[in-house]
Design a binder for these strands. Structure first.
Length: 754
DNA sequence: AGCACGCCGACT
DNA sequence: GTCGGCGTGCTC
C-alpha cells in the first residue's frame, strides 16, 4: 500500500501461472526510466519478483503497491512484439508473463526467496535473498553429507530424496523437483537436519568457434525454382503478409530458393528469419548462409549457453544482424523490419514446444509474418495435411518443385500385401528385389521403425507379457545384450528362460525389430556385407559417422535401420529401399499416424537413387488400402485444425479428433457420492455437447497438487476468444469436484484468427 | 510458482 | 503435546 500518491500507475505481467496482470505505482524518481517493455522489480505477496511493464493504466483500485526498481535502461520488447506475445498468450491459453519470459533470453530475471538462517543467538529467522539477474547459467546442486545418522522421523518424500542423493552423490535441484516433485520445503528440511549441503555452480558454456567462410555465388535456378522465386519476389515487393507452401521433393533445391528470396529481402533493407527443426541441421545451414551473405547472421538454438544466447539476442536487438537462423524459439527473436520468414521442414513436430508455454512455431510464424507484413515460406517435401488444406482453401500460395535438381528421376513405389503371411519378415518380392540389387552392385536400405530383436515376450501357458514396472509398456527383447528393455525409461531385466510367473518353458518372442531383421538378412544373403543403424549401434561419439562411412565407401551392401536413416543423410549409392512394415507406425493410436507414416516413408524414399539409377521402393504392409489411402484418411481431419496444447498421455486410444479432453485423477466412490460427476457420465455429456470430439484419458498418476490449480486456471483463462469452448467448460465448472486435468486441442487455424 | 495458514494423524 | 504432511487461498 502506497503512502504517497504515485502519479503513475502501470500494468505489469508476472512470469507465474496466473491469468491476471497486476497494477503498480511508480515512485516519482523512477518515472523517467519507465517505458513499456522494461523489467521491473516488484513486491509480490511476501516475495520480490521480476515483472514486465506492459502498459499504463489511468487509475486503479486503491490497493496498490509501488515498484521497487526498474531493471532495464532500454525496453526488452517493442509494442509490436508485445502485440504478438499477447496474441500468442491468448491463442494458447497461457499467462502473458510466462509467454514474455519464454520469448526473452533465459536467466536474466531477478527474484527473491526467503530462506531460514541461524542468527547469533541460535534461533532461526527468515532472511530474504535476491537471486538471479546474471547472464550466466547457474544451478543449485544438492549433495548428501556422508556419515550422518538417519533421523528416524524422516519419512516420505524427504527420505526418498535423501536415499537418492546418497546413491548418486549429487544432483541438480531442477532434476529433483522434476523427478521427485521436491519442493523448497523438502530441501530446507534436509538442510536443517544437516543431511545435505548445496552449492550453486555455473554450468559449462560451450566455446564459441570461429570459422572462415569461403564466398560463393548464387546458383543457376532450374525452371521450377525460378518460377517459385518469381512468385516470392512479386509478393515481397508489396511488403505485406503473404504465406506460401514451398512443396519441393527431397533434393529439389529448396534451400537455394530460400537463399535467393532472402537476398532480395535484404536488398530492400528488411531482415530474414529462418526456422529449422533440429539443432543438428543448423551448422551446415549456417555454413551455407555465411558463405552466401556478408551481413551479420545470428544463430539461436537450445545448444547455446545462456550467456551465448543472451549475446546473440543483444546483437539482434541492436540490429547488428539481418538474418536469424534458429530452432523454434528463434521465432521470438527481436528482429525488426522482417521481410521474410522461412519455416524449413514445416511438418516437423519439433516445432512444437511441449513444456511450459506450449506453442507450435510453424503456426506462430504465420501469425508473426502477418503482423510484420512479411512473406512466410513453409517448406517441405511432405507438407502437413493442414497446410495442404489451407492451400486448397486459397489461404496459402502454392509453389512446387516437382523435380530433383539435375533432373534425377524419382524412385518408383510398390506396395506389397503382407496379409496371410504375417510370420515372414520378407515377402518373396522383396527377397528377390534385394537379391537383384545385390547382383547389380546397388546398395539397399531396409527400414523398420522399431529397434531391438523382439517386440515382446509372451507366455503361451498363462499369457503373461513382460512389461515395465515404471511405464507399463511392454519390454523389448535385445538379443545381443540378452536383456529385455523398456524403450521409455531404459529399465531392463535379464532375459528369463521360463515364464517369471508360472515357470512354464513355452515362452514366445513375438514381433520384430531391426536387430532381428539384421539377423535374418544375414541368413538369407550370406555373402552380403550388412550394417545396422539404430540407437543401439550408434551410441557414443562418431557412431553415426561410422555407419554412414560404410555406406559411402561401399563397404556396406545392405543397411537395416530405424527412422534414423530417414533424416538428414543422403545415400548416393542406394538404389533400393525396403520398408519392412509400414504398419509399425501406421498403428500408433493418434489421428495423425497415417500422415506421419507417409512423411517418414517419403523421407526414406527421398534418400534413395540419387545416382544415375532411379531406384525402387518396396513397402510391405498388412493394410495396403490403408497405406494407399493414407493421404485421404488424413484429409478427413484436414478441416479440423488440431493441435494439442497440453500433452499428458499419448497412448492407448484410437485415432480421433478432439476439442477438449478431461483427465480425471482419483475418481473414487466417496467423492462421487458427495455429488461430483463420474468420469463416465461426464464423458457422455461432453460427447453429446461437443459433437463427439471428446475423449477421456486417464487416470493420471501425477501429484494432485500439481494437477489442481495450474490446469484448472488454464481452461478458464481468456476463453472469451473461444465462446464455444468457454461455454462448454463453464457448464462443467463446479460440477467437477475431482481434480481434473483438461486437455484442450485448439481447433481454430491461426490463419482464420488474423 | 511460492508462501502462509490451518487442519489432521503419529511420534519425541 | 507438536511436528510434518497436505489442502486452501492469495499475490496489484
Amino acid at each position: 500500500m502506497t503512502e504517497h500518491h504515485a502519479l503513475k500507475i502501470i500494468e505489469v505481467a508476472v512470469p507465474l501461472p496466473l491469468d491476471a496482470t497486476f497494477h503498480y505505482g511508480v515512485p516519482p524518481e523512477l518515472v523517467c526510466r519507465m517505458k513499456t517493455g522494461v523489467r521491473v522489480l516488484i513486491p509480490f505477496g511476501r516475495r520480490k519478483i521480476t515483472g514486465y511493464m506492459i502498459g499504463n493504466v489511468p487509475e486503479s483500485a486503491e490497493k496498490i503497491r509501488d515498484i521497487i526498481d526498474v531493471l532495464d535502461e532500454e525496453p526488452l520488447f517493442t509494442e509490436k512484439e508485445l502485440d504478438f506475445l499477447r496474441w500468442s498468450a491468448g491463442y494458447y491459453f497461457h499467462p502473458l508473463g510466462e509467454v514474455i519470459k519464454a520469448a526473452l533470453p533465459a536467466g536474466i530475471n531477478l527474484a527473491s526467496r526467503t530462506r531460514s538462517v541461524e542468527t547469533a543467538d541460535g534461533t532461526l529467522s527468515r532472511e530474504e535473498v535476491l537471486k538471479g539477474g546474471r547472464t550466466v547459467k547457474r544451478e543449485t546442486f544438492y549433495r548428501a553429507l556422508p556419515d550422518v545418522e538417519l533421523p528416524v522421523n524422516l519419512r516420505g518424500k524427504g527420505l526418498r530424496l535423501l536415499e537418492y542423493l546418497r546413491r548418486v552423490d549429487e544432483a541438480p535441484a531442477g532434476l529433483l523437483r522434476r523427478e521427485f516433485a521436491a519442493t523448497t520445503a523438502n530441501f530446507h528440511r534436509l538442510q536443517e537436519l544437516g543431511l545435505v549441503e548445496f552449492s550453486e555452480r555455473e554450468i559449462y558454456r560451450d566455446p564459441f568457434r570461429e570459422e572462415v567462410f569461403t564466398h560463393d555465388a548464387p546458383l543457376v535456378l532450374n525452371f521450377h525454382q525460378a518460377a517459385a522465386l518469381e512468385q516470392l519476389t512479386a509478393a515481397g515487393i508489396k511488403e505485406q503478409f503473404a504465406p506460401f507452401l514451398l512443396h519441393g521433393v527431397t533434393g529439389s533445391g529448396k534451400t537455394e530458393v530460400y537463399l535467393q528470396a532472402i537476398a532480395q529481402v535484404l536488398e530492400r533493407g528488411r531482415t530474414a528469419l529462418v526456422l529449422v527443426p533440429e539443432i543438428a541441421l543448423t551448422p551446415q545451414l549456417v555454413r551455407r548462409f555465411k558463405s552466401r551473405f556478408r551481413c551479420g547472421i545470428a544463430v539461436l538454438h537450445s545448444g547455446l549457453s545462456d550467456g551465448e544466447r543472451y549475446d546473440e539476442w543483444r546483437r539482434i536487438r541492436r540490429r547488428e544482424v539481418s538474418i536469424v537462423i534458429g530452432a523454434r524459439s528463434a521465432l521470438f527473436a527481436p528482429l525488426s523490419h522482417m521481410g521474410i520468414i522461412v519455416v524449413d521442414e514445416e511438418h516437423e513436430s519439433s516445432y512444437k514446444q511441449s513444456e511450459g508455454f506450449h506453442y507450435n512455431a510453424r503456426d506462430l510464424a504465420l501469425v508473426r509474418g502477418k503482423m510484420e507484413g512479411a512473406v512466410v515460406v513453409l517448406g517441405s517435401a511432405t507438407p502437413l495435411v493442414t497446410t495442404y488444406h489451407a492451400v486448397q482453401q486459397g489461404k496459402i500460395g502454392y509453389l512446387q518443385l516437382p523435380e530433383r535438381v539435375r533432373n534425377l528421376p524419382m524412385p518408383g513405389t510398390e506396395l506389397l500385401d503382407a496379409r496371410g503371411r504375417k510370420g515372414a519378415t520378407f515377402l518373396p518380392e522383396l527377397i528377390k528385389a534385394i537379391g537383384d540389387n545385390l547382383a547389380a552392385g546397388g546398395q539397399t536400405l531396409l527400414f523398420l521403425n522399431r529397434r531391438g530383436f523382439a517386440t515382446y515376450l509372451v507366455c503361451e501357458e498363462c499369457g503373461t507379457v513382460l512389461s515395465c514396472p515404471n511405464c507399463s509398456v511392454t519390454l523389448t527383447y535385445h538379443r545381443r545384450r540378452e536383456r529385455h528393455f523398456c524403450h521409455y525409461c531404459d529399465y531392463s531385466i535379464p532375459a528369463p528362460s521360463v515364464c517369471p510367473k508360472c515357470d512354464s518353458q513355452s515362452i514366445a518372442l513375438l514381433g520384430r525389430g531391426t536387430e532381428r531383421v539384421e539377423e535374418e538378412v544375414r541368413e538369407i544373403y550370406v555373402d552380403a556385407r550388412i550394417g545396422r543403424m539404430d540407437r543401439d549401434t550408434t551410441t557414443g561419439r562418431g557412431g553415426h559417422a561410422r555407419v554412414l562411412k560404410g555406406l559411402e565407401n561401399g563397404t556396406i551392401d545392405i543397411l537395416v535401420g530405424t527412422q534414423m536413416i530417414a533424416k538428414g543423410h543422403d545415400f548416393p549409392g542406394v538404389t533400393l529401399v525396403g520398408v519392412i512394415s509400414a504398419d509399425a507406425t501406421l498403428n500408433i493410436p493418434d489421428f495423425r499416424s497415417s500422415e506421419r507414416t507417409y512423411q517418414l516413408i517419403s523421407q526414406v524414399m527421398g534418400r534413395a537413387g540419387r545416382g544415375d539409377a532411379p531406384g525402387r521402393v518396396l513397402i510391405q504392409t498388412l493394410n495396403p488400402e490403408h497405406y494407399a489411402i493414407t493421404r485421404a484418411v488424413a484429409h478427413d481431419f484436414a478441416g479440423f485444425y488440431g493441435d494439442e496444447i497440453i500433452f499428458r498421455r499419448e497412448t492407448g486410444y484410437p485415432p480421433f479428433a478432439y476439442l477438449a479432453v478431461l483427465v480425471f485423477s482419483g475418481n473414487s466412490a466417496p467423492e462421487v457420492e458427495k455429488g461430483a460427476t463420474t468420469a463416465a457420465a461426464l464423458l457422455h455429456r461432453l460427447k453429446r455437447e461437443a459433437k463427439s470430439r471428446v475423449e477421456i484419458l486417464g487416470p493420471v498418476s501425477s501429484p494432485l497438487a500439481m494437477i489442481r490449480g495450474r490446469y484448472r486456471r488454464q481452461i478458464l483463462l481468456k476463453s472469451g476468444q473461444r465462446p464455444e469452448l468457454h461455454r462448454m467448460i463453464a457448464r462443467f465448472r463446479g460440477q467437477v469436484k475431482l481434480p481434473a486435468v483438461v486437455r484442450i486441442a485448439i481447433d481454430i487455424d491461426p490463419l482464420d484468427m488474423l
